[in-house]
């Protein structure tokens, strides 16, 4: 997007985008830094660990990429991932076949999405606040249906989902990679993707031009709901249990990843490639902090600082875009 405005840029920089290059270097710096502090950081096992840990955040971040481009947001994924794990675990305990249990859980994810979209579209609540409502309610239900206790999963073929590997890479990572590619393609190349960018730019103009913003927003919320539920199911399989208290602040990391990746809170700007880099950056950062022995209390501060950094760079990018536009229009006027 930004590359159109400047002229003399090497082709490969254009392809990757100037801002993404900065992000790329940030990832390298994080890797070098943590490797110096702890040799094991760059080991094969640890890189796989980072990817596995990133897989749930990644699924949610895919959904957030769509939502934030469409000028929406969602604070409920942490609760929904936990609820999904618990529901799936309970269904399996009751002897429901795996496929059916998974499908039902995904439907719950879709329902939470519909509920969020309903609050935003029909009661006109700001997405930030509306999804704070569902964050509470959904977390509540996660505790209610299991009486607050983790539900262990004894179904071995289900738990194998968490352990299965292909070419040494775990299933959860494959799932994230496939979803990133599929949803990245939809965003960049399809009618639906075009509509998301348009309503993020101006919902009213898009409506008058024949789009249906309410429907598009609903689809985005359903999408993040289903993606989160899928992530929650795989997470439960890895843990061999559905845990009602799990995944707190999941949305925080996902939103940080998306904004780090160049998707703007002012709407209509961003892409999935940026989100991929954002996910890698935030998860290597989080894992690295744990590995070098930073206390979990200080990790909160560090993560907050990272989001602040992401928002600041979003602001600076926006300022720069506005300035470029102004200069361009002064030439044209």
């Amino acid at each position: 997007m930004e590359s159109t405005a400047k002229k003399e840029k090497p082709a490969f920089l254009k392809a990757i985008g100037g801002d993404k290059l900065v992000l790329f270097f940030a990832i390298i710096i994080v890797f070098v830094l943590f490797t110096i502090l702890n040799r094991n950081f760059l080991s094969g096992t640890n890189v796989i660990n980072i990817l596995v840990a990133a897989s749930l955040v990644g699924m949610v971040a895919i959904g957030h990429t769509y939502l934030i481009i469409a000028m929406q947001n969602d604070l409920s994924p942490g609760s929904l991932a936990a609820l999904s794990g618990v529901i799936c675990a309970l269904l399996l305990q009751k002897g429901v076949p795996i496929v059916l249990a998974v499908l039902i859980t995904l439907c719950v994810g879709a329902l939470v999405g519909i509920f969020n979209a309903w609050m935003v579209n029909s009661i006109k609540i700001e997405a930030f606040i509306a999804t704070l409502v569902s964050q509470m309610i959904v977390r509540g239900f996660a505790y209610i249906i299991c009486d607050g206790k983790p539900v262990s999963i004894s179904n071995q073929s289900f738990n194998n989902i968490g352990k299965a590997r292909l070419i040494g890479i775990p299933f959860s990572v494959w799932l994230m990679i496939i979803c990133l590619i599929v949803f990245g393609f939809i965003l960049a190349k399809t009618k639906f993707g075009r509509s998301v960018y348009a309503i993020g730019g101006s919902a009213e103009a898009a409506r008058l031009a024949g789009l249906n913003p309410r429907k598009i927003i609903r689809t985005c919320f359903i999408m993040i709901g289903v993606l989160t539920a899928a992530g929650g199911i795989v997470f439960a399989a890895r843990m061999n249990a559905g845990q009602p208290a799990a995944n707190v602040n999941l949305e925080f990391d996902a939103i940080t990843a998306v904004v780090l990746g160049g998707t703007s809170f002012s709407g209509g700007v961003g892409d999935m490639g940026g989100t991929v880099l954002g996910i890698i950056l935030i998860q290597s950062f989080n894992t690295g902090l744990t590995m070098v022995g930073v206390s979990s209390f200080w990790q909160y501060v560090a993560r907050g600082a990272l989001l602040l950094f992401a928002l600041t760079s979003d602001y600076i990018r926006k300022q720069r875009r506005d300035k470029e536009l102004l200069e361009a229009s002064m030439r044209n006027a």
Partner: peptide, 16 residues
């Protein structure tokens, strides 16, 4: 506010 979609290109606006 109601006509142009400001984040899109000329082509994007014509084609929306």
């Amino acid at each position: 506010l109601q006509g142009i979609i400001s984040n899109l290109s000329v082509a994007g606006n014509i084609n929306i």
